[in-house]
Nucleic acid binder design. Sequence first.
DNA 1: GCCGCCGCGTACCGTACGGTACGGTACTGG
DNA 2: CCAGTACCGTACCGTACGGTACGCGGCGGC
Lengths: 214, 214
Amino acid sequence: MSTTVARDETVHEAPSARQQAVLDAVLALLVEEGDQLTMDAVARRASCSKETLYKWFGDRDGLLTATVRWQASRVHAGRDAVGALDAAALRDRLLDFAVTWLDVIAGRTSVVLNRIAIAHAGSRKGNLGAIVLANGRLAIGGRVKPVLEAGRAAGLLAFEDSETAFRTFFGLVGRDVQIRLLLGDALDLDAAEIRRDAARAVDQFLALYGQARP
Amino acid sequence: MSTTVARDETVHEAPSARQQAVLDAVLALLVEEGDQLTMDAVARRASCSKETLYKWFGDRDGLLTATVRWQASRVHAGRDAVGALDAAALRDRLLDFAVTWLDVIAGRTSVVLNRIAIAHAGSRKGNLGAIVLANGRLAIGGRVKPVLEAGRAAGLLAFEDSETAFRTFFGLVGRDVQIRLLLGDALDLDAAEIRRDAARAVDQFLALYGQARP
DNA sequence: GCCGCCGCGTACCGTACGGTACGGTACTGG
DNA sequence: CCAGTACCGTACCGTACGGTACGCGGCGGC
């Protein structure tokens, strides 16, 4: 058997430059046109043939998945490494996370991608929702929790479970912003308001979980 | 002119019993089948003709809108009336809101309807998102804020803006629950866990905004 | 220069689904 | 008993869109 090799060329890792351009076209289309994204429109916008799209991405879902992954890969950029913390450094770290997170979820791209993933999660077989979850809520949690634990180790914070503490932080930062945006509420946050909201959230979190150094 | 009367029979208020049955069928289908809801399936499930569906609800969007309104109308049931509050009564009221809210957003029906509304908000012309927002986040806000203000009047709470205070409450209660469910995370909360989470949220809120009676 | 190969453009196919038309049945008022 | 109305069931239409097939131009290898 194996008369033809039939190599699987669908994108699983590291899209080529041309493929990235296609994925950027998808993002642009998504942001501009809402979610009635057709393969024809993508091909036209990216100046490529539908056949190529199917060759590279398998099917529509594959294209969407690759797009979500592609977008996720650019958001991650972040220097971490938790060293010893004093109160001011802890506050700065948390503030940084809060601002970054609000920036992301308030962005058009995030809103649109989350809409897609949510719709997808509704019609089963959707790992899209899982992917967005893994790169959004779960990723930020994975990065914040070590900071919280370092804060506890330094005697600056008091909590039993870092997951629970993080979820409180998440709630204080996000509040109703994401659901309102997803449902189409206008609510445009400028940078100044994001900074204010983030600072308020961090202050509240520290009020709940902080403790004076013993 | 006006040779034919062409009365607009589309449902705007108070669906009849038969229409309610249709809307319940829609909800059932939505919960069972995810969101690939076809007019054919509705007609079959509700044992009515598609023609009747179109006569009653205008088009698919009209049917969806009526369904969302219908569901919203049953959730509202709530005795309010804010009298004088002591600390325990305030806490009870807030706890009640928190439990009710978590119950709602954790329900399959709410998740599915929010998915529909969010998808709809993505492809413009969608007042569906606005309707869900008005009957969800905004409605609960409208009912909680008077309680907060009564608490402040009684010297139990301290805040400047009740909207801001409410949004903090909202964040503490909801945290990441809604977005996770919308994205398809399993995360099933039983009644006991909801009560625990609600109580924790209320305690945290009171820790932030409460003050001992002067 | 000639030959594959890659990928663009375009035409095409199949189907699912929104929306309409129509015949048949039951009920109501006159 | 007849006319009108309401509504069920089903057949039907149009179209949008996912997916495929094919012809053509450009480019690297021999």
